[in-house]
Write a protein that binds this DNA or RNA. Sequence first.
DNA 1: CAATACTTGACTAACTTGGTCGAGATTCTA
DNA 2: TAGAATCTCGACCAAGTTAGTCAAGTATTG
Lengths: 154, 154
Amino acid sequence: MKLSQRGEYAVQALLVLGICYGPEVIRIKDIAKQQNIPRRFLEQILNDLKSGGFVQSRRGVAGGYRLERSPEQILLSEIIQYIEGPIESIDSSNVGGNNHNLHSDEAAKCAINFVMKDVRSAIVGVLESVTLSDLCKRLHEIQGSMENPPDYSI
Amino acid sequence: MKLSQRGEYAVQALLVLGICYGPEVIRIKDIAKQQNIPRRFLEQILNDLKSGGFVQSRRGVAGGYRLERSPEQILLSEIIQYIEGPIESIDSSNVGGNNHNLHSDEAAKCAINFVMKDVRSAIVGVLESVTLSDLCKRLHEIQGSMENPPDYSI
DNA sequence: CAATACTTGACTAACTTGGTCGAGATTCTA
DNA sequence: TAGAATCTCGACCAAGTTAGTCAAGTATTG
């Protein structure tokens, strides 16, 4: 279970916007530079995040992006499921209901699906428990530990 | 979170071998037919499962495959992690230890990794709780519900 | 008007996935 | 011992996905 590059970049970008959350807008260029993301690629991603209702944009010379909602209101599960596609696939065919007339391969697939459904629930459970705000706090902690670098001098 | 076709076929094949677990050996051809898996592709997969220590093979005219261990001793997590690659990626760089001298993109990736690590643990947790034997039982249940098909006659 | 920044969609190179194929090695049976 | 059945090994291939680039356009500000 690994995020695609696209997915990781998306969360990184939202993290930056989350940290700087406010009425002002932040330029693609700055996010790209700070997070070391290819600029043109990030354009695509932010555009996509806009369609997904995660960010707003402003065009023109003082343009840029900001979050559409506050970081507390954005679940990591939403972001990732939007960018990477739904984790909880809605197939659920032959699960829990009538399992009649299944060929033996279908029966096997069905048995496997049973546990994969649990796996997906577990994933979503973890991701739903984390907001963008939580991630921002975590980032602050990590950066906090950088503010007091170990003193190796005598 | 979805199994690759390869992964699903692998579990299906092991399920068949699990159901028929015993000293005798089962032919690729039969597994392929029963589970509707492309024969040549299944050859690859079973060969791979052999390298992974999941199955034994016998060559020659009465050849075939059987499980290397009993179904109770095979965890679903082992199978899937072997076929699909490790879920619990061992990177864990910058996790829990010294987070000094991280560039801001590294700090962000680190924060993200923190929660992805939880996700992976959750996945492995579910998969470790299921043995091949459990899956076989589940399959029996599903097939059991086929033995008494609904009677639509008057 | 010029500069800046987002917008849109086409394009591409590299990689992965799902699968096929041929030739060989091994083993059983007649 | 020949031949048939079966696994073994590695090359090959088509289609799809991923990561990323590019060009031309639109909107906004100074």
